[in-house]
Amino acid sequence: MNTQDLLEQASLDALGLLDEQERQAFETAFRAAPPAVQSQVRREQARFAASEAMLPKVDVPAGLKFRVMAAVREAIQSFNRVETARRAEHTPFLRSLMWNSTPLWRAACIGFATATVTLAVFFSFVSERVKQIEATGTTITSIGEQAMLSPEYSTFKLNGGSIEHRFMHRVVQAAAARAVIEINPDSGEAHMIVKNLPVIGADYALVAKGARDGEYKEIAKFQALSTTNMFRADMDPEIEPGSLGILGPAVEGGTSVLIMSVG
């Protein structure tokens, strides 16, 4: 489309006389035209658009402005209502937190409550079990005396003996150690409550003294994780409870010594 065609069709476009295809061709040609031609086209179109040559000479009805303003106001309000509703529906994060994740939150809450109840039941059961073991089990007591050298170190001196064992571990407390063990005579399953072991975090061993050779043999190893510990072990039902003892953690020289025994 040359400049002459563009100017010729400017009036037709301004008066809406071009169909969609023709209008697009005109638009393309207009955008490709030099700025001076574009200005000329704009002026020409404005002249036609504002021309009253083809329009009847009638007065605008009184009140039409009021009705126009009311119609636009209604359209704006309607748009705002729809837009507000749309935004409310598409507030993705909050919306998902409120509704989409509700089942998740509900499940989490139910899970938490269930876990709380389960733990309460469990601790209640353990507490009862500890009381039962302490009431009916075999007591293993300390056979020496522990003394604190510093917050980091302690010594353990066997009763009546001259040997002093030095524990090179962090010492939590020096209260008298005590253990209670209950053995099922049918299955050999044993449960042991151990309190106030000299060194928390150290390895200990439950041992039994041989009836013939008098040597202590290891039944199970365990680690003291706190001041009160509960352990389970499988034992020979034939083992005499009175032969049980507990070996302490390795001391200087890498040896372990019996620190607790029955009786």
């Binding site: 301004a14 008066l15 704009r42 002026r43 404005a46 036609f48 658009a49």
Partner: peptide, 14 residues
Amino acid sequence: KRAALVTWVMLLAR
């Protein structure tokens, strides 16, 4: 840049 306002209004109206 594309059209004067009067052109825009009258074209839309038409």
